[in-house]
Write a protein that binds this DNA or RNA. Structure first.
Lengths: 189, 189
DNA sequence: GGCTCCTAGTCAACTTGTTGACCAGGTGAG
DNA sequence: CTCACCTGGTCAACAAGTTGACTAGGAGCC
């Protein structure tokens, strides 16, 4: 019921095709409401059927035709109403954490490896977020931007993503240290 | 496919009923793999059918009977194998972030209210986590605990939960400030 | 005495999310 | 020249998660 709203929010950035959203989603809403391409296409169809988005068919030579979606006024109203309802509590689902939870009865070397891989993923994400941030700021200082930009929502969520990945990185690093130290200790005794 | 593993990991803490897990889950695995009671009962049945957990029926006077589940050796093996597989990337789903993303086109006062409520939720969680942490440490210093405890997994995941909620709190606070400042600016101009 | 909440579940129906395959032409690498 | 990958989708089947109702006795409250 909320992918709808994530899509509407994404379309605030302007017209987009399902394909655009499926990819570029990464840059915005996908970080706190991920979805597979399938889900997007299905939901876009429903949104169109409900009149919350309009589809514009763009014929392309040399490429498959595409449908560009944009918000209708009804869509904007629906989004506005959504922001007025109390949000349900957020959810995290992370297999890595399950593995860490079970590390003492599991394959520790593999879990350490997984932690390392998560670190490089986090670093990649941080780099991408920093680039997006620089793009939004576009040379201005943060204060200036926040005071004058016509939209701050995307910047705020971006900052949440950044801090999340930074904490991820920090935590993985620390956990690795702890596991390695225990390993060293074990081998002595 | 992974709720299985979350459950197996939870059962490392010892025998538990579906009901225990549905509640006490909060204290451990539910933070990174939430599930409704329904899901737990269903999955526990499947786990029992697959021989990964064993159920012990405990008859109670004055209370409904309960089934206490515990890991079988097959269950432990399955959990071990799970920790050896590369975890899939974690997912966050949070309506509040969608609302913040759309705040500039939405009901800003309501979103600010939602941020405030999220702050108190975060504070509650932090307090709970701190209590759990104190319980685990049980008077020892962290270094001592981490070097000698027979399990560190639960402590590590607890620390991740703590840092997540702290960042949540910080971010909500900061976002509120930014939104309020913009409001003040708007009213002058 | 009635109200709600707690324990410990079960059942059914529904909505979401995931996986994998298919189509078709264009582009770039080797 | 082939192979893989990119654009822009569609379809079907399945797995996972959610919601709401029902059972049933006991406890505590006012």
């Amino acid at each position: 019921m909320s992918l709808r709203n994530a899509l509407l929010a994404a379309l605030l950035e302007g017209e987009a095709s399902g394909y655009d959203l499926a990819k570029g989603f990464d840059a915005s809403v996908a970080n706190f409401w991920p979805a597979t391409p399938q889900q997007l296409y299905r939901e876009l169809d429903r949104l169109a059927a409900d009149g919350l988005v309009r589809a514009r068919l763009v014929h392309q030579e040399k490429r498959p035709d595409k449908r560009l979606f944009s918000l209708t006024e009804a869509g904007e109203r629906a989004l506005h109403e959504f922001t007025a309802r109390p949000p349900r509590p957020g959810v995290i689902r992370d297999e890595l954490l399950i593995q860490v939870q079970a590390v003492d009865a599991g394959d520790e070397a593999a879990v350490r490896q997984a932690l390392k891989e998560r670190m490089t993923r986090a670093e990649t994400k941080i780099a991408r977020y920093e680039r997006l941030r620089a793009g939004l700021l576009d040379g201005r200082f943060e204060d200036d931007y926040l005071a004058n930009a016509e939209r701050v929502g995307p910047y705020l969520t971006l900052m949440r993503g950044l801090s999340f990945e930074r904490e991820n990185l920090r935590w993985c690093e620390q956990s690795l240290k702890i596991l390695e130290r225990r390993n060293a200790g074990d081998q002595v005794s």
